[in-house]
Amino acid sequence: MERLSLNDLGLIIGISLMYAAPLMYTALGGVMSENSGVVNIGLEGMMTIGAFVGTTVAYFSGSPWLGFLMGGLAGGVLALLHAIACVSFAADQVVSGIAINFLGPGLALFLSRVFFDGATMTAPIPLQNKIPRPMNNLFTKGSFLDLVLNQYATVYLAFLLVFIVWFLLYKTKIGLRIRAVGEHPKAADTLGINVFRVKYLAVILSGVFAGLGGASMSIAVVSNFRATLISGQGFIALAAMIFGKWTPQGSMWACLLFGAAQGIVVYLGGTDIKVSSQILEMIPYVLTLIILMSFVGKATGPAANGVPYEKNEA
């Protein structure tokens, strides 16, 4: 058996980060929404529209950052629909989320046909117009540090966002309000917090983050959108958020774990160890499940999560 060299380890870490970053954005979206008591299974749809809008804007404007922001905004617009349905009209949050998951890809494909001559795949962005890699050419090509740190800026921003969301939720007044609304909206209301406004804010932000997650797939990991680009990442992010016990830092670790499992699979597939690739393909999912079941324990979300708040009910 081959020995695991430092560079192999670097490769695995690098792949983990590449895989984990889009999931982290999206999981943070889930954290925002669910801490305010609104279940958001529409993350997948919001990610898809973000991925499409991100790469399309970047392609036409030549600015990846504008594309990235617009991707987030597009996710936010879809989330607004979710908020209207779930907060104002107290609709079933799961049903609305499913509708969003249909709406996102449907809209993305429809618009793609409009902008790219009937194609369901956008044209690729040239390398110089992609999100920059801040540490490109800083280290020797292919060295350990290069493999680990030569990532797109979106990867670093994902970690920054984890910190920002953690700070927002646990160190600021608005964060306390979001959590209060998610735990016991009636009590929060009695204390004069505008429950609806807080929920709207949290849900829209969740869409923005999911949109950023999608855009980080389509303008950093690859350089174009196609119908199969976002296929399940939104649900994996949702699972990561639950395993992370609805906290930003927990979600981050869950996403990194999943990314690491993917990295290990790619590494193993490249060695002489004879394992069928179908078995290898299962490893990330099985490994994530086993580790989380054995080390994380019972997952308890916000008390009023998923329950629509209606002011006038007794």
Binding site: I15, V221, R226, V266, G270, S277
Partner: peptide, 25 residues
Amino acid sequence: VLRQYAEAFGDSAKGKAIASSMYQQ
């Protein structure tokens, strides 16, 4: 020849990871 199967036709991230690993090797 280094050979590897992604077990997916739509997973761009995996394709990128595998190719990176091959270039690395």
